[in-house]
Design a protein around this nucleic acid. Sequence first.
DNA 1: GGTGGCATCCCCCAAAACGGGGATCCCCGG
DNA 2: CCGGGGATCCCCGTTTTGGGGGATGCCACC
Lengths: 214, 214
Amino acid sequence: MTGVGSAGKTHVTCVIADDHPAVLEAVAEYLGQAGVEIVGRARDGEEALEQIEQWQPQVALVDVRMPKLGGIELARRAARLAPDTSVVLYTGYGDRAQLTEALDAGVRGFVLKEAPMDDLLRALHAVAGGGTYVDPVLAGTLAASMGSKDAQLTQRERDVLRLLADGLANDEIGKQLFISAETVRTHVRKAMDKLDADTRTQAVARALRDHLIS
Amino acid sequence: MTGVGSAGKTHVTCVIADDHPAVLEAVAEYLGQAGVEIVGRARDGEEALEQIEQWQPQVALVDVRMPKLGGIELARRAARLAPDTSVVLYTGYGDRAQLTEALDAGVRGFVLKEAPMDDLLRALHAVAGGGTYVDPVLAGTLAASMGSKDAQLTQRERDVLRLLADGLANDEIGKQLFISAETVRTHVRKAMDKLDADTRTQAVARALRDHLIS
DNA sequence: GGTGGCATCCCCCAAAACGGGGATCCCCGG
DNA sequence: CCGGGGATCCCCGTTTTGGGGGATGCCACC
């Protein structure tokens, strides 16, 4: 899994981004001692993106939740500004929706903060060697949720649910989205169907809990 | 602020609990160098509680979100098992509801992980000296939310909203709570009033977002 | 002993949502 | 070229909600 032709001694350059000073310190310290060259640190997404563009590191280790710019959107932009940089997400919490969105965004690694720090090094070398790394825990939930229910909504359905969560009625949502109230109802019903909800309220609650809408 | 009669050189004993290895490492390292005696570490709430009971430290620095036992419930139990230990929450995220619940639970300090690590030491000495410490950011939002809208729900209103989020209809909720559907409606309307919501769906969404219900 | 908050129950009525249908259009992939 | 999924729109009858109103008992606080 780890070695794809290059051993652990390979020179790896890395930018770290996390809004928690303790994490930034700990990771920098740990990776530094492990022979990784830390070429930049950042406390928010924008700062991280600048560092990545400037230094074009092999790996960028970033938190998902950061001020100004989240890790996933950061990954999308980094793909253009630094095509050779592999993004690894290092985060405290991860669900299926987030993981799939991250992988779509081109993220190459996904490590949970609750994992032993060794995994960090493993992930770094995996992606630096051209591979990918997903935390075993997440990999498990991903596999588990593959077989069961998908419950992924269309863009329109998400739009409608979000406005529903903001307290708008069907016709108000219709005006907002330039469609008729009847169509809104259709979307709501489809969403309720997919989310296996008995009421629109439950559908919104499910979508919120599963982070399908914010 | 810091010295309440004792200078910074005071001997302070401390137990640290966090499920993120990096945070645990960084905090232990930092506090150790600052002269704080780390008498125990834990990766989850139960482990932390055992350590606290065993060592009766002056301070316990714990994360809010931990496996098995959250930081707030931990604080409640620690108050009985180790009355002389002051609990400081060190967490990545904090909203008003959480802060007030924490203070109710007897938590003496509240520090955000995004704050400079110096604040950690400041908080530790503050609570070890008998004082309290709340992160400036949280203190701000607390003050801000004092003046504006309260939005605190009664137990019954929370009950109803939670069941609403689970997709139950009024009469189903009534059966569940042994009250009439009319009373359920009353609670929903009161909750909508307090949350300034136009629909019950929005009320549930607000309650979920503000962590008034889970 | 009053006042206010909480929980409980009841009524009415207009408006909205629900749960079934069915229907058209467009686009993409087999 | 046809199927299927997505987005759009429509109808009908039943049920629920939203927004008013009022009423009772209880308990705590002043």
